[in-house]
Design a protein around this nucleic acid. Sequence first.
DNA 1: ATCAGCAAACGACTCGGCGG
DNA 2: CCGCCGAGTCGTTTGCTGAT
Length: 398
Amino acid sequence: MSDHPAKVAFSHWLLTGTIVHHAHFETMQEQYQVSVHPQLIMLISIDRYFEICIGRPFLWRREIAIQLSQVIQKVVSIPYLTIWVEEGVMALLLELPKPSYEHPEQLYSFTHPLAEQVIKGMADQGVSVSIGIGGFYSNPYLLHLSYQEARKSMIHRFFQGNQLIFHYQEEEKREIAGKSPLTNEERTELQALVRIADEEGVISLLQLMLKKLAVAHYQDVEVFKSEVTDLIMLMTRVALENGGNMIDILSRNAALIQDLYHTIRYDHFVKKVSTYARQLVAQIDMGHLGKVSTWIRKALDYMRANLHQKITLVEVAQYCSMSHYYFSRKFKEELGISFIEYLNQLRIKKAFYYLEQTDWTIQQIAEAIGFDDANYFSRLFKRYQKQTPTEYRRAKLY
DNA sequence: ATCAGCAAACGACTCGGCGG
DNA sequence: CCGCCGAGTCGTTTGCTGAT
């Protein structure tokens, strides 16, 4: 443990950059009996610390500090020192294994997984933390710069909280600000999931995308917000194209965009966007489902979530604790079409987006939507759409 | 009324071959 | 190599029966 007063004092010298006034680094190390040679600072901040402190006993603060120390001890296998720089914020001074890190990527590939482990370790204890990571300095006299960078990286109050990791970067990033961190595949997948009304799928992908945007645009909330607005419009369009109530959706949409503009906390922002996405999905769902029994809903959720792989009637029936004979019968009774028919429609719906918005081969698309055989997919597509997948793609393109 | 099981019919899916 | 088509295989559906 580095709670030892000498180590704390030593860490303090390093963070404040005042060590140089006192003595040589090695002399200090001997004097304080510290063998660690830190080159990088990771700041671990307990999310919304003061907010969660309210109403808790004072001892709780100590408990949470001990938990964090334990997690660090468990996941950090390299030499380190720790020091609380303020309530709820701990600095982790790390001695990295390799002598130099010429490219930022080399550094990230080491520090990022470590930060993720700390976040996960604390999340397991029910505590959310965010982490800011400063630059690498082999010279210990410059370590205070790493500390300042780590602080700077997490300075924007909008993004505070929610288990995000920020790497300090020079201004260089500004140049490529026009480039979105999201891939076309992710956008396409999001649209496809909205279309098949896979609520959980939409939410988890959406949250992943928001996180990516947050990390990429932590220096500029406005850019972040405008990218998210694009995503919202993307989902809205799909909902409108697929039978959502236009007046209802558009009024909610307008209210949301207004609201988001004034939202000053990232977690609230994410929650509002998620709620809106759920409402959109519900709109599509209602178009053809209306009210169905809970077991049907359960079966459909299962089918949507596993669409990318082989799904059999027996498997879904088992999932719903029914015999497959009975399941097959009741399924058709409630939805008007057979199990396999419904499953195929779901798959074909998803295929539209891949055809329109990716350049994947028919084989790749077939695999992505759970068909082993691209030939079969082609034929099925033709039956529903009166044209083959390639014809459909060409028609959409020109 | 609800549900499971059997058997037969049906059609969804696979495999191999063909054309662009 | 990619995508489409024909024939065979096997999973799905459905009528019927019987148990709870």
